[in-house]
């Protein structure tokens, strides 16, 4: 079995409430997910809390994994990232929910072919982000890895809020064009 198949098989068994599979999945992916939580939250205690929440979500939602078409590591990392960002924002000011879209994909996700295309495009993400004009790549990274809102990005880059929106949206369109090229 490939890594992907092994992790998919573990998630499928976790969906059937198999404790052994859950422990094996934890041992397999927790270091990567903890790295992501630490990167976002930058504090060990907060990252540990986010990890615990992440794995409870994985336990409770594993039965929804198969339908969404994501690669297993994308699904797991997305849950960890969203959970960490959620905590980060709650810490910054009042509670603000970041959806965990990976958990909510009830509609069928991409076909395996589409998912493979997206995954191969992902390989170009770093180059494409770096190729964006001005600091748009940094803004996308700031949103994804630091949970920055449009208002916070506008402050960081010292531009009016609506300029920030327009600017980033153009950046996203350019990013897509670059990755599909």
């Amino acid at each position: 079995m490939t890594d992907r198949e092994e992790i998919e098989s573990l998630i499928a068994r976790v969906a059937l409430k198999d404790r052994t599979a859950f422990e094996a999945l934890y041992d397999r992916v927790s270091a990567k997910l903890f790295g992501v939580c630490l990167r976002v939250l930058n504090k060990r205690a907060a990252a540990e809390d986010a990890m615990q929440d992440t794995f409870v979500k994985i336990w409770n939602n594993a039965d929804r994994y198969r339908a969404n078409g994501l690669s297993p590591m994308t699904w797991l990392i997305t849950i960890a990232r969203n959970t960490a960002i959620d905590r980060l924002r709650a810490r910054r000011k009042g509670h603000q929910d970041v959806d965990t879209p990976g958990l909510e994909l009830i509609a069928p996700g991409p076909s395996p072919e589409q998912a493979a295309v997206a995954a191969s495009e992902a390989a170009r993400l770093t180059d494409c982000l770096d190729a964006l004009e001005e600091n748009r790549g940094a803004a996308v990274r700031g949103a994804y890895l630091d949970g920055k809102t449009y208002a916070e990005l506008a402050e960081t880059f010292e531009v009016p809020l609506n300029t920030m929106r327009t600017w980033l949206r153009r950046g996203l369109q350019a990013l897509r064009a670059c990755m599909q090229a």
Binding site: G35, P110, A115, A123
Partner: peptide, 27 residues
């Protein structure tokens, strides 16, 4: 939903450079 999943798949590459860190046993 397919577009959302596509962006999740692309953006997750931003975590490629993040090194794994073993969480403490107590976790």
């Amino acid at each position: 939903a397919s577009r959302v999943a596509g962006w999740q798949e692309r953006f997750v590459a931003m975590t490629d450079g993040i090194d794994p860190v073993n969480p403490p046993r107590k976790l």
